[in-house]
Each structure stands twice: as structure tokens, then as C-alpha cells.
Amino acid sequence: MKYYFTLLFFLALSTAVIAQDTTPEGSESRDFSARVINAQTQRPLESVHVVNLNQVVGTITDAQGEFTIRAAVNDTLFFSYLGFKTQKIRVTNDMFRFAETQVELTELAYALEEVIVQPYQLTGFLDIDVRNLPMNNAYQYSISGLPVSYEGGNKSPNAVTKVLGAIMNPADLLRNLFGRHPRQMRKLRQVKEDDRIRDLLASKFDRETLTELLQLEKVDIEDILTNCNYSSSFIRTANDLQILDALSACYEEFKVLNRQN
């Protein structure tokens, strides 16, 4: 009987080893290394932002254009660098099997347009120049007793209706926006927790990395923040990290309001 149980033990152990050996290559995350170069000059590119969109981790290339990041087969890596076209690649088994994988980024061609230095003439007389300066047509509406004001856009009856709707039914206005992207909204917390991702987003203003991470269109981001009472100037000038934090704060407030209703 003792021999029988010993035999069963070794049979089970060998089965486990065989199963482990037959596990498809690349099914688990591991360190993936590669090199990023300029497609035109074949020179390495330093400080290229590399983000694993599936696992929400990021890194940057060193002076030799090299980087290492956690990845698994079929993960998508997103590359972005100022002045170069962004690129996405799918990680394959061959990239792990063979060394010296290279990713080539292509330079963007910039067409310089005519720049008007003085869109309006200044006379030097303050009272005249003040009247000639363009005015901000966005109206802020406030109600006594409420600590915040509401931006309603241009002065029109629809602007007032929008403000009243935001006050009376704040969750209803955002339910459709957030309801269309439940998976992306749940991913917000994961994106916020990676310090390297936050550092990358802090230096970006084009929304490209953010839209790839969250799988949202730029217009969706603008709609969400507009309905969360963020001004158009903030949406236009904030860096990607500030936009990420604003989206997260807006979603948390929405969840609270949604539970109350």
C-alpha cells in the first residue's frame, strides 16, 4: 500500500511538470526588452514613452534607445515621442525568443503656417485698448447658497436650461456618458495607481496616450469634463495627468450621486 501511494505521488508530480512544460509560451507576463530608433537616421531615441496598454504600466527609453517593460504575448505597446508619429505594436512570441528587437518611429512633417503676431492693433491708450480687446463669451452662472458656479457657454436660453439641469439632475446628465464606457471608467483607478504612467502623462498635452489607455475618443473626454463643470480653458490647456485626475474625480462624484438616486 505504501508503494502504491508513492507511485501515485510521482505520477501526479510528473503530470504537473509535463503540464507546466506544455504551457503556451508567453502566457505569463515577463520582462520584455527592445530598442527604439529613428526610422530615418537609424539612431537611437532617448526618452521615448512606452506604455503597455493591457497591463497599464509604462517606462521610457535610455540614452541607447533601450527599454524594459512587463509584457505578455498579445499585449499592445504604445510608443510616443515629441515630433514623431505615435505607434502601437503587438507583442509576439518571436519578440521574446529573439534578442535585439527594434521599433522604428517616423518623424512628423510640420507645415509652418503664417503667424499673425498682432491680431489687433494697440494704441497705447488703456481706455481705448480695453474696449478693443476680444472678450470671453463664456458665461458663468451662480446660485445663492451654492459654493460653485456653472459654465453655460454662450448666453442663450439653452445655457440656463443646461445649468439648471446640472443642478437638479446631475447624475442623469452623466449617466449616458459614463454608461457608454463602463470598462474604461473602471480602468481609471488602475491608470492612476502607476507612478510611471502618471509621470509620463504629466509631460503630455495631446491626449493621445490618455485616449489609448482609456480607449476613449477626445470628444468623449471633453463631453464628460464639460458636464462635470470644468471650464473650456482647463480642458484645452491642462496636461494629460490633470485631465486624468479630473475624469477620475468626476466619475467618483457621479457614483456617489448615482447611489443617492
Rank of each mutant, 00 (worst) to 15 (best):
S203D: 14
I197Q: 02
V191P: 08
F178D: 01
L105Y: 03
C250D: 12
T209V: 10
E222A: 06
L53W: 13
T161S: 15
E222N: 00
I37E: 08
F96W: 05
T76P: 09
I60C: 04
Q140S: 12
N74F: 12
I116Y: 13
L8Q: 07
L45P: 07
F9P: 00
Y141N: 04
D195A: 04
A71S: 11
N176E: 15
C228M: 07
L244Y: 03
N154P: 15
L53E: 10
H181D: 07
F125M: 09
E253H: 05
A138L: 14
I116S: 11
K255N: 11
S232N: 14
G58L: 03
F67M: 06
R131E: 12
F205D: 05
T41H: 08
Q190V: 09
T237H: 09
L244M: 07
D206W: 00
L214M: 10
H49I: 13
V117I: 13
F234Q: 00
S29M: 15
L13C: 10
M1Y: 06
T101N: 15
V91P: 03
Y139E: 15
K187I: 06
Q215F: 02
A34M: 10
R175V: 05
V36N: 06
D220I: 01
V115C: 12
T23W: 09
S233Q: 11
A246M: 03
D206Q: 07
N176Y: 13
V219C: 08
Q102W: 02
Y150S: 03
N38V: 03
Y141Q: 05
A238S: 11
L53C: 07
F205E: 08
N74Q: 14
N227M: 06
Q55K: 11
S203L: 13
L164K: 06
Q42S: 14
D21P: 06
L7T: 10
K255R: 12
G179S: 06
I37H: 00
L257A: 05
I221D: 04
N169C: 10
H49D: 15
N132V: 08
K204R: 11
L247Q: 08
R259E: 08
S14N: 13
Y4K: 05
F96R: 02
T15I: 14
Y120T: 06
Y251E: 06
S149W: 02
S142L: 06
M168C: 07
Q190D: 15
G179N: 07
E208I: 09
G152A: 09
T41A: 10
Y4D: 03
F10R: 04
L173E: 11
G58P: 00
Q64E: 13
I143H: 02
T68I: 10
S232W: 15
E212P: 04
R207N: 12
N227Y: 12
I60R: 07
N158I: 00
F178S: 04
R189W: 09
N261Y: 09
L257Q: 02
I37A: 07
E66C: 05
P157L: 01
K218N: 15
L112T: 11
T161G: 13
R259M: 10
R196H: 11
E46M: 09
V117E: 14
S248K: 06
I37P: 04
F205I: 07
L210V: 03
Q64Y: 08
T209H: 01
S47H: 14
L77S: 01
F78M: 00
V50E: 09
